[in-house]
Simulated scan of single mutants.
Amino acid sequence: MRGVVIGIVLAGTLGISVLLHSYVQDTGSRSQSSSGFISLSPGLTETLFALGAGDAVKGVTQFCLYPPEAQERVSVGGLLDPNYEALVALNPQLIFMTPYHRDLRREMRRLGLSYEIVPQDTLPEIRESFLHVGVLCGHEEEGRKLVAALDRHMSAVSELVRDREKMRVLLVTGRNEHSGSLQEVYAVSTGSFLSDLLEIAGAENCVSGAVAEYPALSVEGILHLDPEYIIELVEKDPQTALPKLMAPWHALSELRAVQNSRVKILGGSHFTIPGPRITQVLDAFVAALHPDLKECVL
């Protein structure tokens, strides 16, 4: 657990030149008359605002809802299908994209739009994105401060749970809530930022080595894993629909997590967004796994 935090910090310190090279080589041509930024990712939008560059953000996707000020910017369409006319009209200095936008590069170049591909899939990548985006938007010092605050937070949590026994946890990010049963259950596998946060919080992800980052699990697969704890992430406040959400889990009475009342439903759109609010996600994991530490982190 402490090794995860130390490894992340070292990766950021020793591997920054490699990561920066991967960013820079995907930059398109820049126009001297252009200004401001466009973000095609909620995580990068939140990063820009957290760095203090919000005033320079001219356009965002329809899914960039935080901070609230982001909703006042021009909407340039969806995550993977932006409105190119809107992009050109805004004439940005730079468009921030993720590796999932690689298929857009050819059209961006054709239109003469400058872009930067910034990965945020893993915890080290999120950490490095704060530094790199900070440099690109003229807020380098703020980027360093954001990373330092993240490092301190992770180290403090790691120390807080250091002597706790690790529990095998199934972390669920989605399922068919309308079926009344556990269908199309998507779990978090090792290698993602959510799995890293789970480990720092003092748990062991019971889904490891999967080909997909968010593999689909059958009921039989869940029974085979038999996790000690289940945490399900939903987008909205789960309290009003909690009995309905919990019922399918309670039906699996063979599971140790169910027998020991260790099934937790956590609500909030920020849980699956890589960016500055991952410290809140980490704290929520700690509070769910270690109720006696709730007041220490929330």
Rank of each mutant, 00 (worst) to 15 (best):
I95M: 06
A148E: 11
L198N: 08
G180M: 02
R127H: 07
A284G: 04
I230H: 07
I231Y: 02
T190F: 00
E295I: 00
V169R: 02
S31K: 14
L282F: 06
Y214V: 01
Q32A: 15
P248T: 00
R30N: 02
D226V: 10
H153I: 13
V133I: 12
R256Q: 15
M246D: 02
R162L: 11
S75Q: 13
M167F: 02
A203L: 15
I6Y: 00
P68G: 03
C296T: 12
S195G: 15
K166Y: 01
I6K: 04
F285E: 09
L20R: 14
T27F: 10
S208W: 04
I8C: 04
V297Y: 05
E69P: 05
S253E: 15
E116Y: 03
T279R: 13
S39A: 14
A247K: 13
S22Y: 06
F193K: 03
S253T: 14
V172S: 12
G268D: 13
V147F: 05
G12D: 06
L150E: 10
W249T: 11
A187G: 04
E295Q: 12
A56S: 13
L298T: 11
S34Q: 09
S158A: 15
T272I: 14
S208P: 01
A148M: 09
I16S: 06
P42N: 11
D121L: 09
L48T: 13
G209R: 12
L51T: 01
I273Y: 08
A257V: 08
V157R: 04
L48F: 05
F130C: 03
L150I: 01
G221M: 08
I273T: 14
S192C: 01
S189L: 10
R277K: 15
S22L: 08
E142T: 06
T13W: 10
Q62N: 12
F63S: 03
Q93Y: 12
S75W: 04
V263G: 02
V147G: 05
Y23E: 10
L48M: 15
T98H: 04
V18T: 14
A247H: 11
L289M: 12
D26R: 08
G36Q: 01
H290E: 11
E254A: 15
G7T: 01
L160V: 04
V9Y: 08
P291G: 12
S41A: 15
P238D: 04
C64V: 09
V74H: 03
S269V: 09
H224T: 14
A241S: 13
